[in-house]
Design a protein around this nucleic acid. Structure first.
Length: 269
DNA sequence: AGAACCACCTGGCAGC
DNA sequence: TGCTGCCAGGTGGTTC
């Protein structure tokens, strides 16, 4: 579910609702996420106000007066602001705000995480080794080309591993490679500087278009207000194995490292 | 160093 | 209708 555009959609949705608000109570109903929600989370942050809401790769960082919350939505997580907690089965954490509203974290598969971090969150061990943020000016084809010299791993795998460019997930890896006309099996180190430049532009373009559409909804993604995204309507290869590309060729589905990859054998060489 | 695999979970769906 | 098995957006850690 939540890849970078979905996380950014959530960030934009909740930020205006929670920045400046004070946390008056925290209810943790399920601590067992991918990592255990820290004991005493409520005690530590109750009374603090929200100073800012940031995103790094697929992590959301809610900065408070003197610490930060590090939130990852995993595969099925959602973070929304609501008038009241729903008491739904998978609504694990409820932050009550001073305006009577609630920030609510739900995650049926519990692959996500909610941790405490220092206010200077960039040094957090989960964040400090992440690659380049794809929607910044720092990210371009030269970054890809330099990082991938000598790499035999398939370009799709290299995009997904987050070491060079962070936050490109399974859907947008396939879509970006289609946009750049690059075959996902191509060894990352075999891609020319020129094609790396095309790929970097494609990644930015696909992510921006997805954000504009409010993210993709596969099954259950909803934004900070509980609304689904629309970008899944615009997938050109993802999830379309066996159907026809705009060029007429049949889109292929293959598996790389146990993850589905989709591509057009005619458009992508 | 790098690649392959595993683990963490639940829910939805296809097929029988 | 109901059971079983398979698949799914992520990613950190372990093993080879």
């Amino acid at each position: 579910m939540p890849e970078l555009p979905e996380v950014e959609t959530v960030r934009r949705g909740i930020a205006p609702e929670i920045i400046g608000r004070r946390i008056v109570a925290v209810f943790v109903r399920q601590r067992r996420l991918r990592r255990l929600v820290p004991a005493g989370l409520g005690k530590k942050i109750t009374g603090m106000s929200v100073v800012g809401v940031y995103r790094r790769a697929k992590y959301l960082i809610i900065v408070l007066d003197s610490c930060a919350l590090l939130v990852h939505l995993g595969m099925s997580g959602a973070l929304r602001v609501g008038a009241s907690p729903s008491k739904a089965k998978h609504e694990h954490i409820d932050w009550a705000l001073d305006n009577g509203k609630h920030l609510l974290y739900s995650d049926p598969r519990r692959f996500g995480l909610v941790l405490l971090a220092e206010k200077n969150f960039a040094k957090h061990p989960l964040l400090e080794h992440l690659g380049c943020e794809p929607l910044t000016r720092n990210f371009n084809g030269r970054v890809l080309y330099a990082a991938w010299r000598g790499k035999k791993m398939p370009v799709k795998t290299a995009l997904l591993d987050g070491k060079t460019v962070a936050g490109v997930g399974n859907i947008y890896a396939s879509e970006s490679l289609f946009d750049a006309c690059i075959r996902p099996q191509t060894a990352a180190g075999k891609i020319s500087a020129k094609r790396c430049a095309v790929l970097a532009v494609a990644i930015k373009s696909v992510l921006r278009r997805a954000i504009r559409a409010g993210g993709s909804t596969l099954r259950d993604f909803v934004d900070g207000h509980g609304h689904p995204g629309m970008f899944q309507m615009k997938w050109r290869v993802y999830g379309r194995g066996g159907s026809h590309c705009c060029c007429g060729a049949v889109i292929r589905k293959i598996f790389q490292n146990g993850r589905a990859t989709y591509y057009c054998p005619r458009c992508q060489r």
